[in-house]
Design a protein around this nucleic acid. Structure first.
Lengths: 353, 353
DNA sequence: ACTAAAATTGCAAAAGGTTGCCGCACTCTG
DNA sequence: CAGAGTGCGGCAACCTTTTGCAATTTTAGT
């Protein structure tokens, strides 16, 4: 039923060691031998046993994707990008959801619990590397555990300690310039005549929330726009929080903002739905812009302007980085491009003053 | 750094065998001993080595989720449901995307390729079981490979050979009555005065597409409604195909349907967006109903009427079924409930004749 | 042709659990 | 007190592959 290396070796008249060399593409094998062995392996329908291989080499050919399930679409895209590279290299991807304690540093117990749980899960599995998505990639707790367990990792979309990545003692990272992107969006809004802007922040645990807010503030300041505190509302990246934020922004007594920049697309969708309910037309009365260019951006009407983030690409590169960490062929700190996409939800501001 | 069973055994003053007994919850161990061993294991921070365990017992504590990436949200939900149960039982979930050949039986080469690829992937990994999502759960090719490799599986949302599940020679299954659900939706539409119905079919590879169509037809026939062929349009579960279908249905010369039932929510969203573009008001001019109750149903405006399918629950039960297959505690053929949810996208038909 | 250097190849020990068989020491029943 | 049942130890084979080191063959240089 199942052929072993031994079977192949005997059949080919060589030693197990040689077969192993061929299988692992090691050098120093005569071309003739190599060919004969590969032929026999195929003939016997040989496939290596993961467990045995893992035991002997303390490698598992398993990569873990650790995520905190706040943004399913984001995770899904990373996952897709990661899996495709895994497949190419014979690796498998296992899912490791983690519930980040709300504010880990103020809650030592939660920190302990998380540590204990992760250790059990990771040590046993012996994955060859883990992909850290936000907000895990900025968690000192998680990073600490990984370091102590000596498990390789890569940070996807981090917002803190970026330069650490250049030091081989820290995990490599791949990120996007959230601040600059938010800055660009805001400037574009301003450039189309908007002066009364509203902003919805993302989840407090996510560093990207702060970066996007900073970009927004930087742009408004540059153009001498005054944004009252009431125009910046806390959200948490969910559609519901977008609704709540929009309610606050749009039912404000006095003037409404003419444009709202939400920190992600789900919240932007919430804004649009509130606007619809209130009879505020998007985009003629209100421009709305999101972030991420999630699938929903194209599926709503009007279609949502957003920032297209190459999430799949990031997942892709993450695995490549993990797999290439022995040689230094890949830069340890990679930045990916974004692109502003303007669709039906934004328009030139018609208010004349 | 890493404790082995031996370490625990020595420390506890017992034999490896006993430790093993405790760890695997085997009987015939004194309560006192059991407690001492577990205490020491925790103290030494011991975690079993997956590879070694897998090698010795030919179990991997790995479950695979096989899917064909047509409906990301569906997969994600199954995945979430599955993972939570895995965690409880110390299992891990690995992702195995599969590209189903478009029409496998008419393309023998594709069949061969798929077989070869899957064999390599599955034999090596030695998963303890696989979860099959549509349309894989209806693929004879895939089912055949699994059977030959003697890998346990469970079918989620199958539409063919349901009763096979009762036979222990075939995998157990868990499904929803798509036909009845579609029937109910259609009847509800008819009950609110709609006589001119349009229907958008799902992906050809998915059995659910046919079942939903059948339910639709059964309901219209029961109520003596005539649905011309042009009112039933082929889609493929994507938003884009919903757009195309809606264009066909709504720009028809002559009367438009007053209600459109799309086989899933993404396509329904496509219909709504076309309606918006054409100035057709939803729901006053056109009722739209989807299927699945995906997140987008609540995020669009008007909110979409749909069929709430307990996808998470199905993923959950799937793993339980896989893990419990030794004892016969769980029924091998399980049916889950659905619920019709009517929201803003459907309304009573105002057309008087 | 002759030896040093380089290229191949083989042997056997690990890696960390699981499992089966047997043995021994108890503790209950009746 | 015989016989049954429980709790545990000991040993060792086994699962399949990797790998350090040594042995062997080939190649190259003079």
């Amino acid at each position: 039923m199942k052929a072993t290396i031994n079977d192949v070796a005997k059949r080919a008249g060589v030693s197990m060691k040689t077969v192993s060399r061929v299988l692992n593409k090691e050098p120093n094998v005569a071309v003739k031998t190599r060919e004969r062995v590969t032929a026999i392996a195929r003939e016997l329908n040989y496939t290596p046993n993961f467990a045995a291989r893992g035991l002997a080499s303390s490698k598992s050919y398993l990569l873990a994707l650790m995520y905190d399930d706040i943004n399913p679409i984001y995770v899904m895209e990373i996952q897709n990008g990661a899996i495709d590279v895994c497949r190419e290299h014979g690796y498998h991807l296992v899912l490791e959801p983690v519930k980040t304690p709300i504010v880990s540093w103020s809650n030592p117990k939660a920190h302990e619990d998380l540590t204990a749980e992760l250790e059990t899960r990771l040590k046993g599995l012996a994955v060859d590397g883990v992909i850290l998505t936000p907000p895990l990639c900025d968690s000192q707790t998680v990073l600490g555990i990984l370091k102590r367990l000596n498990i390789a990792s890569v940070r996807v979309g981090p917002s803190q300690n970026l330069t650490h990545a250049n030091n081989y003692k820290y995990p490599p990272a791949i990120f996007m310039d959230d601040k600059q992107a938010a800055f660009d969006v805001t400037e574009a809004l301003i450039a189309t005549g908007h002066k009364d802007l509203g902003f919805i922040e993302g989840h407090k645990n996510h560093g990207s929330s702060y970066l996007r807010l900073e970009g927004f503030k930087a742009a408004t300041e540059k153009h001498n726009l005054i944004v009252p505190k009431s125009r910046i509302v806390q959200g948490d990246y969910t559609f519901q929080s977008g609704i709540a934020a929009a309610n606050a922004l749009l039912s404000e007594s006095g003037a409404r903002p003419t444009a709202i920049f939400a920190s992600n697309d789900d919240m932007a969708a919430g804004v649009v739905s509130v606007a619809n309910r209130l009879g505020v037309n998007v985009p003629s009365d209100l421009s709305v812009c999101g972030f991420d260019d999630a699938p929903i951006a194209r599926k709503m009407s009007p279609q949502l302007s957003s920032v297209c983030q190459p999430i799949y690409e990031m997942g892709n590169r993450a695995v490549k980085l993990l797999l290439a960490r022995k040689d230094d062929s890949l830069p340890r700190l990679q930045i990916v491009d974004y692109k502003l996409v303007f669709r039906g939800s934004t328009a030139r501001c018609l208010d004349k003053e």
